[in-house]
Design a protein around this nucleic acid. Structure first.
Lengths: 362, 362
DNA sequence: ATGAAAGCGCTAACAG
DNA sequence: CTGTTAGCGCTTTCAT
């Protein structure tokens, strides 16, 4: 039934021999370049089929210098936010005949740098990176310097000459915060998984999405003429336990939060779990909202108000822009020019988890 | 600051010239094989650093015949079940110095076949595939025939000489179904996204996980001496609308279901949404359970009883077995031998969504 | 349109 | 230990 497993895979030379033509001719017919007479092409493809020939893409890439592969470096695929982005990117890439090499860095900067280097060594034609929070972007600048296109996903870096595609959350955050302020909340906690070491004046550089969220909150407070106290901007929600501790911190002490906002859907789950454990009354005595409108948000009790971010559009656009550059080399942004940023607007989905601020507790 | 962007990337030859040694010597020092005197090695690495040399992995792979890359073909990464598997696989692979090329097939058989072929053409060292439901596994057999190791994830195929790693759900399904039967349920609906065309005697071949679920249910019914009516095994829950329609079908008619079980967490969300819309009383008048214990399962109301599947372990083991074969070529299973299967047990997490079967409705 | 031959950047086999 | 010489399988001149 099955043909005897050949030790050596057939090459263009084998096909050429069998078809009685020169190696180059066979290669042309097989590779679909140059020109071959219909008759010869037919003979060659027949020989190829008979031999079970398959092109060696490695060799092909070596000759052409293009691998039809793009690299994707993400902090955490199991966060469905990035899962959706990954899906959109690979969809677009695949439609254009490109493959995606995925590297998960667990948000570790060193792994990210290694990944970028290795992908470049593997000669990917372009790179999509979700940069982990870090002061150092040398690896990204180095990547750009190779001349291969790089696109930043979800996070901007002013110090990297690459375009970036993300979500414009500021207006949505303003709206959300405004709604909370209008409901009488003054003490609003914000939880992010970002490490406390990054709670730093250069936050905009280190993690633009977090900076944007904080910026939107500040703007809303300012518009309402309410002083913004950033003692409730809580960093380090990277695990259920850590998040629980931060929730406790927000809800205890002399001037506790009356509303909690989580920076993504993963944290939201941990926050909600902790709030249940504490027996908090939502939305009567405590309000809650989350970034990322997860599919379960409408189903929990109370249904969670969320900032919905069009991450699939972001991913798709990212891939499109990258492939555009991949196809027209030298078209990348000048290392000197201002970084180009494209963003898609987020919107607030109002649900039941926000209520009027309660009177003093107990 | 930044060195002027070189048009041509430096090669071993450039490094060799600058270090005043032969190309092969430089290559040895850089590639970490053969033997070089410490002194020469130092000189070479210095030259490499000065030139900003980076190895061309493509060329390296071409010479060695190994790409240190494995292919991963999955139906749907945005389903966090496979997202977790992907994460585990890439973790293990990465730790072993392997990269992962990911292809999403949207469960389309043709895309899967193309992906497998293309990955082999790109000379991946091995392949992890979650085979989409299909009668035809020719592409997988062809992959095995190349001699490169292939491991099947989550789904078995008796007609493919590859090992497979999955979840043993049968005992858990028996337990879950037994619990429902003990609670008095007789009409239990099961919803799967598998297309109705696959509701076929060869289900075991087409999609072993679905076959297993049905098998476990049948066993539990048999053990309870209750006839199993498979008119409630509902296929085609591939979209919110389709799922809603199936829920309606299960809950209407002369002999409606009193319990619903969904085949995965994505479907669970759609089912719950529809049940809300219909105003069903859970768990008083209707019971519900799901495969995949999603993180939100404890948070919805009522908390969802679920079959928890150790997909991360499965993914990790899959990668381990694959890499083991990758490293010892010729160690793969004989095409003739019985396929090797490794599986990890699922367990039932009992929560509030299952209650006693109600009396007649209305 | 086809053939011959020269690379792509590296590894590998063989001398010295 | 180091240099020389071939490849790996394909693309790409350059002739013819």
């Amino acid at each position: 039934m099955t043909e005897p497993p050949r030790r050596r895979e057939p090459t263009t030379a084998d096909v050429a021999r069998r078809a009685g033509v020169a190696k180059a001719t066979a290669a042309r017919a097989l590779g679909g370049y140059g020109s071959v007479s219909p008759e010869v092409r037919e003979r060659v493809t027949a020989a190829a089929r008979a031999l079970g020939y398959r092109p060696n893409e490695l060799a092909r890439s070596m000759g052409t210098g293009r691998s039809r592969t793009i690299g994707l470096v993400v902090g955490d695929i199991e966060n469905s936010y990035f899962g959706l982005a990954t899906r959109a990117i690979s969809e677009v890439a695949h439609a254009a005949g490109y493959e995606v090499v995925l590297v998960n860095t667990a948000e570790r900067h060193a792994d990210e740098a290694d990944a970028v280097r290795l992908l470049l060594d593997k000669r990917v034609d372009g790179l999509v990176v979700v940069p982990a929070a870090s002061f150092d972007a040398g690896h990204l600048r180095a990547a750009c310097a190779t001349g291969r296109p790089v696109v930043l996903l979800d996070r901007r870096r002013d110090d990297v000459p690459a375009l970036s595609v993300g979500v414009d959350v500021v207006p949505a955050v303003r709206e959300l915060t405004g709604a909370l302020l209008a409901a009488g909340h003054r003490r609003i906690a914000y939880l992010t998984s970002l490490e406390p070491e990054f709670d730093h004046p250069d936050l905009e550089l280190i993690s633009s999405p977090i900076a944007d969220r904080l910026l939107g909150m500040r703007q809303a407070f300012a518009a309402a003429g309410v002083p913004f106290a950033d003692d409730l901007a809580l960093f380090g929600a990277h695990s259920p336990a850590a998040t629980a501790a931060l929730v406790d911190r927000a809800l205890e002490g002399p001037d506790p939060a009356t509303a909690v906002v989580s920076s993504d859907a993963v944290i939201a789950l941990d926050v909600l779990t902790r709030l249940r454990e504490r027996g908090e009354d939502l939305p009567e005595r405590l309000s809650f909202a989350s970034f990322d409108d997860a599919p379960w948000a409408p189903l929990v009790d109370p249904a969670v108000t969320a900032v919905q971010q069009p991450i699939q559009q972001v991913g798709a656009e990212c891939a499109r822009l990258l492939l555009e550059q991949v196809r027209s080399p030298g078209d990348g942004p000048d290392p000197g020019a201002a970084p180009v940023v494209r963003s898609f607007p987020a919107r607030v989905v109002h649900r039941a988890s926000i209520g009027p601020a309660p009177g003093p507790r107990r």
